[in-house]
């Protein structure tokens, strides 16, 4: 991981006023949501498990909003800045690969910073005691982290391969529709999988099946491995496209 390139990407994003305002507004909105839902949960019999399940599902659903927004910001304000600079990348040793990966890493880091504190402060400070379990939190973090990285990789891959590089990766109508379609499919399928898995993980986390190695652990490792291979393939294809250009 090349930290100086990631630092450069984060600086480029934060030096852009609309992007900065959006991120600030997002943080404010998340804080208000946590405070508001905390008040509601505590006022309405917080110990009710089914109600806590509902709130947890809502938090996860809201989790996707900043994630998608960060990817939009990354494409709009960070990748578009590379219009001329991919020429710079072609002058630096392994430049194309470094520049492309840094776009993914910086988006992933930013999305993790904007989503995970929201999710965990929701669980911890709003009294969702049923989910304040280390195994459950670890499993959730693992799943959502890999989902975040793969979504960030996918958006960068899609932009490099299907947007017009000559005009600063500005998408056409087909590009936007295609991107929206795939991102919606990504998010919906992830939410459905997670919602279905919520009760499963809850059962696991509350201590019914703690023997190792167990199915949950194998599933997590297997899923992570598939995610890693898929992201590497996508990045490689995008790199080749850049080098060809």
């Amino acid at each position: 991981m090349n930290f100086s390139v990631i630092k450069k990407d984060v600086i480029l994003l934060f030096r852009n006023r609309p992007a900065l305002i959006t991120i600030s507004a997002l943080i404010l909105l998340e804080a208000v949501l946590v405070l508001y839902s905390g008040g509601v949960i505590k006022a309405e019999s917080g110990s009710d498990i089914s109600r806590q399940f509902n709130f947890m599902q809502n938090y996860v659903l809201i989790f996707y909003f900043p994630l998608v927004l960060v990817n939009i910001l990354n494409l709009s304000f960070s990748l578009s800045k590379e219009k001329g600079s991919f020429l710079l990348a072609s002058l630096i040793p392994f430049g194309e690969s470094t520049f492309l990966r840094s776009k993914v890493y910086s988006a992933a880091i930013l999305s993790v910073l904007l989503t995970f504190p929201f999710l965990f402060s929701g669980i911890i400070f709003c009294g969702l005691e049923s989910f304040q379990n280390l195994s459950f939190l670890a499993a959730t973090s693992f799943y959502l982290l890999f989902f975040s990285i793969s979504l960030c990789t996918f958006t960068v891959y899609y932009a490099v391969c299907f947007f017009d590089g000559d005009s600063g990766y500005e998408p056409g109508v087909k590009g936007i529709i295609g991107m929206m379609f795939f991102v919606s499919v990504f998010v919906l399928s992830s939410f459905i999988v997670y919602s279905k898995g919520l009760s499963h993980y809850y059962t696991y986390a509350t201590g019914f099946r703690h023997d190792y190695p167990n199915l949950e652990m194998n599933l997590m490792i297997g899923t992570g491995f598939i995610f890693l291979i898929a992201t590497r393939i996508m990045l490689r294809i995008a790199e080749k496209k850049l080098i060809r250009e």
Partner: peptide, 14 residues
């Protein structure tokens, strides 16, 4: 081909 939003120092160090 330089990043307009970076300072000369940031660009050089990068």
């Amino acid at each position: 081909i330089l990043y307009n939003d970076l300072t000369l120092k940031e660009m050089s160090l990068f």
